[in-house]
Simulated assay, not measured.
Amino acid sequence: MGEKEHWANELQQQLASKSSDLESLQHQLGEKESAIASLQQQFATEKQNLESQLQETVSKSSYEALQQELAEKSSAIGNLQVQLTEFHSLKDQLSQSAAKQLNYEALQQESQEQLKTIKALREQLVQMQAVAGIGEAYLNKWRRP
Rank of each mutant, 00 (worst) to 15 (best):
Leu29Ser: 09
Glu136Lys: 07
Ala76Asp: 06
Glu86Asn: 04
Ala8Leu: 10
Gln41Ile: 06
Glu5His: 03
Gly78Tyr: 13
Val126Asn: 13
Gln101Gly: 08
Gln108Leu: 10
Ala65Glu: 11
Ile36Ala: 00
Lys47Asp: 05
Leu115Met: 02
His27Gly: 04
Ser20Thr: 15
Ser24Asn: 12
Gln129Cys: 10
Ser19Gly: 15
Lys4Cys: 01
Tyr104Arg: 14
Leu90Asp: 04
Ser61Ile: 06
Glu64His: 10
Glu136Met: 11
Leu50Glu: 10
Ser59Ala: 06
Leu66Val: 03
Ala8Pro: 11
Lys119Tyr: 04
Glu110Thr: 09
Phe87Arg: 11
Gln40Met: 01
Trp7Tyr: 11
Asn79His: 01
Gln96Cys: 10
Ala35Gln: 11
Val82Asp: 12
Ala76Ile: 00
Val58Trp: 05
Thr85Pro: 09
Glu136Gly: 11
Gly135Glu: 14
Tyr63Met: 14
Ala137Glu: 06
Gln48Arg: 03
His27Thr: 14
Gln114Met: 14
Gly133Cys: 02
Phe87Leu: 15
Ser19Ala: 08
Gln42Ile: 00
Met128Gly: 08
Gln42Glu: 02
Gln127Asn: 04
Glu136Ser: 12
Leu90Gln: 12
Glu23Ala: 03
Tyr63Glu: 14
Lys18Thr: 12
Leu29Gln: 09
Glu123Ile: 00
Leu54Ala: 10
Leu115Ala: 13
Gln67Gly: 00
Glu69Tyr: 08
Gln93Ser: 05
Lys119Ile: 02
Leu22His: 04
Ile134Gly: 13
Gln26Val: 03
Ser74Leu: 05
Asn79Gly: 09
Lys18Phe: 10
Asn79Met: 12
Lys47Gln: 01
Asn140Ala: 08
Gly78Leu: 06
Trp7Met: 13
Ala132Glu: 05
Ala98Lys: 13
Gln40Thr: 01
Thr85Trp: 07
Ile36Ser: 01
Leu94Gln: 13
Ser52Ala: 03
Phe43Asn: 08
Asp21Cys: 05
Ala106His: 12
Ser89Arg: 09
Met128Pro: 12
His27Glu: 13
Gln12Ser: 06
Arg144Lys: 14
Leu90Asn: 12
Ala99Arg: 05
Lys32Asn: 10
Ser52Cys: 01
Gly135Lys: 13
His6Asp: 08
Ser52Met: 00
Gly30Arg: 15
Phe87Tyr: 02
Gln124Val: 02
Gly30Trp: 10
Leu54Thr: 07
Leu84His: 02
Leu22Trp: 01
Glu136Arg: 08
Ala120Val: 05
Gln14Ala: 06
Ala137Asn: 09
Gln28Lys: 02
Leu11Arg: 12
Ser20Val: 07
Ser17Gly: 09
Val58Ser: 15
Gln42Leu: 06
Leu11Tyr: 13
Lys100Asp: 15
Asn49Ile: 00
Ala35Cys: 03
Gln109Tyr: 12
Leu15Tyr: 08
Ala44Leu: 01
Ser111Lys: 12
Gln28Phe: 04
Gln124Arg: 15
Gln53Asp: 05
His88Met: 15
Gln53Cys: 03
Lys100Ile: 04
